[in-house]
Amino acid sequence: MTNFQQYSKYYDLLYKDKNYREESHYVIEKIKSFAPNATQILELGSGSGSHANYFCEAGFEVTGIERSQEMTAIAKAKKIIGFNPVVGDISSYEVSSQFDAAISLFHVISYLTENEALINCFKTTNKQLNIGGIFIFDIWYSPAVYHLKPETRIKRLEDDEIEVVRLTESEMESDKNVVAVNFEVIIKDKITQVAETIKEEHLMRHFSIPEIKMLAVLTGFEVLQAEEFLTRNSPSQDTWGVCFVLKKNKL
């Protein structure tokens, strides 16, 4: 199924405990460090606009590319000043503007499980960046995936109208560097007591640092930095998410 297609309207509730503010400020620090004059940001996989909200508050103008029409509609409804979310595939999008920085957060790049889509995404992003522009993204890190292994998890949340229970079970596809993440989401209406169940499979690719360095060279970038997301520690077998900063070298 299309990722988030069915439960997009419950997405913000499912991730209401995610610290978008801390994550956004961490990336803003990277932008100010590596591209201090940046004003225009391209966000790949902009979702419901939760990260973009903080970037716009910091004075940036953000164009978001999001393949889910439902998620894009939610983002537009928030009326975030300085944010323009559009529907598009991050491996084949095209916009008329040029940007100082591109970002892709919450492991969006790990959704590109095929080499062709991954290379196309990086080449397209390179074209959309000004010379010297930077590309910041986070991915699942292979050493940690093999060491820690995905766990079965249950998450329960509610608001005034609904109760949500999400079961997450994962299967390793080691020959493809992919984890199949299977979601079963049960949504219960508190008033009618009617419940519906949604099932989706998300394929997530994990990467090593040499893979990203090779991908960067192939698509006109160089790797400036690789570190554990948020903590700034050196990546290790206990580091599930690694943040990369790339710089555009050529068209």
Rank of each mutant, 00 (worst) to 15 (best):
residue 202 H to W: 05
residue 215 L to K: 06
residue 212 I to Y: 03
residue 187 I to S: 04
residue 182 N to L: 06
residue 188 K to H: 03
residue 203 L to R: 15
residue 209 I to W: 07
residue 190 K to G: 08
residue 211 E to V: 07
residue 212 I to C: 02
residue 211 E to D: 12
residue 210 P to R: 01
residue 211 E to L: 07
residue 182 N to S: 12
residue 200 E to N: 10
residue 220 G to T: 06
residue 187 I to G: 02
residue 185 V to S: 14
residue 193 Q to H: 11
residue 205 R to W: 01
residue 219 T to Y: 01
residue 219 T to A: 05
residue 190 K to R: 11
residue 189 D to W: 00
residue 199 K to D: 08
residue 210 P to L: 03
residue 217 V to P: 00
residue 183 F to M: 05
residue 206 H to T: 03
residue 214 M to Y: 08
residue 202 H to R: 08
residue 194 V to W: 00
residue 191 I to R: 12
residue 188 K to N: 08
residue 219 T to I: 09
residue 220 G to W: 13
residue 218 L to F: 00
residue 187 I to P: 06
residue 209 I to Q: 11
residue 187 I to T: 08
residue 188 K to P: 09
residue 185 V to R: 02
residue 188 K to I: 13
residue 213 K to C: 07
residue 185 V to M: 14
residue 214 M to P: 03
residue 182 N to P: 04
residue 195 A to P: 01
residue 210 P to Q: 01
residue 221 F to D: 00
residue 192 T to L: 07
residue 191 I to M: 12
residue 209 I to G: 05
residue 213 K to P: 06
residue 182 N to R: 12
residue 214 M to T: 08
residue 185 V to I: 14
residue 189 D to C: 04
residue 220 G to V: 03
residue 191 I to G: 00
residue 195 A to W: 00
residue 186 I to P: 04
residue 182 N to T: 09
residue 185 V to P: 04
residue 214 M to D: 13
residue 209 I to S: 05
residue 214 M to W: 07
residue 183 F to A: 08
residue 200 E to V: 10
residue 215 L to Y: 10
residue 197 T to D: 05
residue 219 T to F: 03
residue 190 K to N: 09
residue 213 K to S: 10
residue 193 Q to T: 09
residue 189 D to E: 10
residue 183 F to P: 04
residue 197 T to I: 12
residue 185 V to E: 13
residue 190 K to D: 06
residue 195 A to M: 11
residue 212 I to K: 02
residue 192 T to I: 04
residue 206 H to K: 02
residue 194 V to S: 08
residue 194 V to T: 13
residue 204 M to V: 10
residue 200 E to K: 04
residue 198 I to S: 02
residue 220 G to E: 06
residue 205 R to G: 08
residue 194 V to I: 13
residue 190 K to T: 05
residue 198 I to P: 11
residue 183 F to S: 11
residue 197 T to R: 15
residue 201 E to I: 15
residue 201 E to C: 15
residue 221 F to K: 02
